[in-house]
Amino acid sequence: ELREAFRLYDKEGNGYISTDVMREILAELDETLSSEDLDAMIDEIDADGSGTVDFEEFMGVMT
């Protein structure tokens, strides 16, 4: 189920989504998050600083 959700956002099928897209997902899930909260969450999610979120990083957030 998580893989299907990931595929919805990984429109190009390249195995990752951008941190911008991940930020939008988080904002949709919790509309009360401030910009600073979102920045901090993205920094934590994208631990390797690649600017992308792969499936493993995505799973870590969603579980």
Rank of each mutant, 00 (worst) to 15 (best):
E1R: 11
L2A: 05
L2E: 04
R3S: 08
R3N: 08
R3A: 13
R3F: 13
E4N: 05
A5C: 15
A5M: 15
A5Q: 15
F6D: 06
F6H: 02
F6N: 02
F6Y: 03
F6I: 03
F6K: 01
F6P: 01
F6G: 00
R7C: 15
R7N: 15
L8W: 11
L8G: 13
Y9L: 12
Y9R: 08
Y9M: 08
D10C: 10
D10T: 02
D10I: 04
D10E: 02
D10N: 01
D10V: 03
D10P: 00
K11Q: 10
K11W: 09
K11I: 11
G13T: 03
G13M: 06
G13K: 07
N14E: 04
N14A: 08
N14D: 07
Y16T: 05
Y16W: 14
Y16M: 05
Y16N: 03
I17P: 00
I17D: 00
I17W: 01
I17A: 00
I17G: 00
I17K: 00
I17V: 06
S18P: 08
S18F: 03
S18E: 04
T19N: 07
T19Y: 07
D20R: 08
D20C: 10
D20W: 09
D20K: 13
V21S: 13
V21H: 10
M22Q: 00
M22V: 09
M22C: 05
M22T: 02
R23C: 02
R23Y: 04
R23K: 10
R23L: 04
R23I: 03
R23H: 02
R23N: 00
E24L: 14
E24S: 12
I25F: 08
I25N: 00
I25P: 00
I25Q: 01
L26Q: 00
L26I: 07
L26K: 00
A27Q: 12
A27D: 02
A27G: 08
E28G: 14
E28C: 14
E28R: 15
L29R: 13
L29K: 08
D30I: 09
D30V: 08
D30E: 04
D30G: 07
D30F: 14
D30R: 08
D30W: 13
E31I: 12
E31P: 15
T32Q: 08
T32R: 09
T32C: 09
T32L: 07
T32I: 04
L33T: 03
S34Y: 03
S34R: 08
S34N: 10
S34K: 07
S34P: 03
S35E: 14
S35V: 10
S35T: 12
S35F: 09
S35C: 10
E36P: 05
E36I: 08
E36L: 09
E36T: 12
E36R: 09
E36M: 10
E36N: 09
E36Q: 12
D37W: 08
L38W: 03
L38S: 01
L38V: 08
D39Q: 10
A40V: 10
M41H: 03
M41A: 07
M41D: 01
M41N: 01
I42A: 01
D43Q: 14
D43I: 12
E44G: 11
E44C: 13
E44N: 12
E44R: 14
I45P: 01
I45W: 06
I45N: 01
I45T: 04
D46N: 07
A47T: 12
A47L: 11
A47Q: 13
D48E: 09
D48S: 10
D48W: 06
G49N: 11
G49C: 09
G49V: 04
S50L: 06
S50I: 08
S50W: 04
G51L: 04
T52K: 12
T52D: 03
T52Y: 10
V53P: 00
V53A: 02
D54T: 15
D54L: 10
D54P: 05
D54R: 10
F55Y: 12
F55H: 02
F55R: 02
E56T: 09
E56Y: 12
E56Q: 10
E57T: 15
E57H: 15
F58K: 00
F58E: 01
F58C: 03
F58T: 01
M59L: 12
M59S: 10
G60D: 12
G60A: 15
G60Y: 15
G60E: 11
G60V: 13
V61F: 15
V61K: 05
V61N: 03
M62Q: 03
M62E: 02
M62T: 03
M62R: 01
T63I: 13
T63Q: 11
T63F: 05
T63C: 14
